[in-house]
Simulated assay, not measured.
Amino acid sequence: MSKQHPIVAVTGSSGAGTSTVKRAFEHIFYRDGVTPAIIEGDSFHRYDRFAMREAVAEASKRGENLSHFGPASNLFNELENLFKSYGEHGTGKKRYYLHSEEEAAEHNARLGTNLGPGQFTPWEDIPSETDLLFYEGLHGGVVTDEANVAQYVDLLIGVVPIVNLEWIQKIHRDNAERGYSAEAIVDTILRRMPDYINYITPQFSRTDINFQRVSTVDTSNPFIARDIPSPDESFVVIRFRDPKKFHIDFPYLLSMLHDSFMSRRNSLVVPGGKMGLAMEIILTPIIEQMMGERNR
């Protein structure tokens, strides 16, 4: 961990709501004039989109499960090395995973390359003079026998809906945005389950702050749900591992977030529609504290 070059990581599986946290941090960075080095978790996958399909097929022939959640398809050591390098010197290497034609066109224009969706850009140096490293992806707090990414993170945020809600969000997103059938999506969920249990879930015991969305409607069979529960049909449970670490003022939070309440001594519950507001109110003083310590 580093006061001079702090690292903030947001971890959660795809479709869990990490983009909501990312937007909250973008607002904080803009208002406070913070320049982040932004790292996308997808850029540390081992395979591009086409090679991953082949690797999954080969693993299936061997009776093995290969998924983006596990170490076999990710560069955990390289991610750990980046966090270590940035914490010590404010430097490191990054690249981008191109999700769409638009992203490919943007980076091709910048780099003079001819890459397409599903490919990686070449590795490049993180810009100098950044204030902190901001990671958003699957493995910001991952620990394995070979790699320990979590040890270098100064603020680790977890975003995880209850599992049935997570599945509903994934089924709807992959069907609407990627055209996958419900059967194919369920097959993917099942294939990923061992890695989800071993490498994703344990991270949420290491997070400094965890945001868990809990629906207030029946999600007992996520595979037949017609709609994703709306924010107004849910609560968000916010758990602080050590409230003293970041000087969490619960009376202040309760006064600022209408209809919120404490469920345990370290857990705050807020209406689902106030999730973004809660994130900004909670995280702004933490980032300002980090920047104050960095400047001193």
Rank of each mutant, 00 (worst) to 15 (best):
K3Q: 15
H5M: 02
I7K: 00
V10H: 00
V10N: 01
G12S: 04
G12L: 01
S13Y: 05
T18I: 02
A24W: 01
F25G: 00
E26Y: 14
F29S: 04
F29P: 03
Y30G: 03
D32M: 10
D32I: 11
P36M: 04
I38A: 03
I39G: 00
D42A: 07
R46D: 05
R46Y: 09
Y47M: 11
F50G: 07
E54W: 14
A55W: 15
A55S: 08
A57F: 12
N65W: 14
S67A: 15
S67M: 15
A72S: 13
L75T: 15
L75V: 15
F76P: 05
L82P: 03
K84Q: 10
K84G: 02
E88H: 07
T91Y: 03
T91R: 04
K94H: 03
R95M: 01
Y96K: 03
Y97V: 00
S100V: 02
E102F: 02
A105W: 03
H107E: 06
A109M: 10
L111F: 07
G112H: 05
G116N: 08
P117V: 01
G118M: 09
E124T: 04
D125M: 02
S128K: 12
S128N: 12
S128F: 04
S128D: 14
T130C: 08
D131K: 05
L132P: 01
E136A: 05
G141I: 05
A147L: 11
V149T: 14
A150K: 10
Y152N: 09
Y152H: 11
D154F: 01
L155D: 00
L156G: 01
V159L: 05
P161M: 07
I162Q: 11
V163K: 13
W167P: 00
Q169R: 13
I171C: 08
H172K: 07
D174G: 08
D174N: 11
D174A: 15
E177W: 05
G179C: 08
S181G: 13
E183P: 04
V186D: 07
D187L: 09
L190T: 11
R192F: 06
N198S: 07
T201C: 13
F204K: 13
F204S: 06
S205V: 06
T207V: 15
D208R: 06
I209Q: 00
V214Y: 08
V214I: 14
N221D: 13
F223H: 14
D227P: 10
D227N: 12
P229S: 14
P231C: 06
E233W: 15
F235S: 04
F235L: 13
V236T: 14
R241H: 15
P243F: 11
P251G: 10
P251C: 12
L254W: 03
S255T: 10
L257Q: 02
D259V: 07
R264I: 10
N266D: 13
S267L: 07
V270P: 02
V270T: 06
P271S: 11
G272F: 07
G276A: 10
L277G: 03
L283G: 01
L283W: 02
P285K: 02
I287S: 00
E293F: 06
